[in-house]
Nucleic acid binder design. Sequence first.
DNA 1: CTAAATGTGAAACTATTGTTTCATATCAGA
DNA 2: TCTGATATGAAACAATAGTTTCACATTTAG
Lengths: 222, 222
Amino acid sequence: MNQNVTTGYKKSDIVRTRLLDTAEELFAERGYFGVSVRDITERASLRNASVNYHFASKEMLFMAVIDRRIEPLAQIRTERLHAVDVSPTRPQSSARHIVDSFAGPMLDFAGGDSPGWKNYCILIAHLAVQKIWTDNVVSRKYDEHAHKFIDALHATFPGASAYRIQCCFQFLLSTTLYAVCDNKRLDTLSGGVFQSVDVKRLKEPFLDFVSSGIVSTAQETK
Amino acid sequence: MNQNVTTGYKKSDIVRTRLLDTAEELFAERGYFGVSVRDITERASLRNASVNYHFASKEMLFMAVIDRRIEPLAQIRTERLHAVDVSPTRPQSSARHIVDSFAGPMLDFAGGDSPGWKNYCILIAHLAVQKIWTDNVVSRKYDEHAHKFIDALHATFPGASAYRIQCCFQFLLSTTLYAVCDNKRLDTLSGGVFQSVDVKRLKEPFLDFVSSGIVSTAQETK
DNA sequence: CTAAATGTGAAACTATTGTTTCATATCAGA
DNA sequence: TCTGATATGAAACAATAGTTTCACATTTAG
């Protein structure tokens, strides 16, 4: 039998996926430099040479991890964005929809039961504060996708300056990325009131905060 | 001459400071694991053994870098916080003052002309997304300091639940940390409209966003 | 079934990591 | 100026990093 009948996948693809999953998990935990190839292969119960065989290098494996979920995430976001009508007549509601389209999928994943997506969200948050990976193909893909949301913000607030809209997006991005990475700091800080694991509960306050923050930033209320 | 008359510092302290400054700079650029001891000593034009001599280990040097500016930053923030009166009668204004007390110093430093403080702010942003350094002495010091601001939020919004207040603080923290680290991503994204280097310009929109976000999150408007 | 392509296993390789050593040089306080 | 303490310089240390090699096993496609 040359192929697995039940799954339809080649055996080598199983190893590839296993490497991607484990790498995703570890990179999310400790970041790119905090993880060695041997850390990955040991947790995956594989030989360390498998990384170089299947992905040529550690860096290429990292890129593959990032790349794997770029399009799916972008598509989910875009679908949500297109499903709602953004217009200047109802700025509050439009802003909330835009925020939900952008952050919603990530929050859902982070609070969902797919460990892969959960790790991926945390990983993206890591990337945001590191300068190293900024000007590669991956980041360019994200930028292209981000423009759709910036355009939506412009459509909702036609009177706002380009700078203010850009600020709105930065704030949306920062709150989203931070919300998905549970670093347990605020858990102990709050004495149990706040639980970073419970992302579902965070969603309502999150939408309240960001959408009304955007409204007042775009309208430049003083 | 056993001491430098003009500065009053020992020569060894100059080396110590040089190591701290360079380490701060590099850790801000690439994170803890992305920097080697030799990277630091080479940029500082020192022998690599100097790190172990003056700070025992790379990790202790890192801790020393963090520790150096903890108290000064905390003091500046606390002073600003005590300088304003927070009360439930003027929630909008109180919230803005709290946000300014917390984020203001960091934004000022990030936009100021002290490269040391600038690097430090970025470094703190790195720490936030990494789990590794969460339960150490340093983080405990920060937590203690954070409570003052959470208390101030409680005083401003006595009707808000403890959870909502905690959310407000998370959002304040995330926007602040992200605002200080210029990763140039949004610069290219905006085609020059947004310039992450110009933190001074960001301050007004920042205060607009976070303070009104907090107000509506705490008041739980639906 | 058979032959070519592909993947695995175990080890080794080279470069780099953080750290240590110790003789020498410099400094601090009397 | 003298003496113990402290710092430097150059080299080496053991451990770990990413990667490569190659004989062997397995899978793929005709």
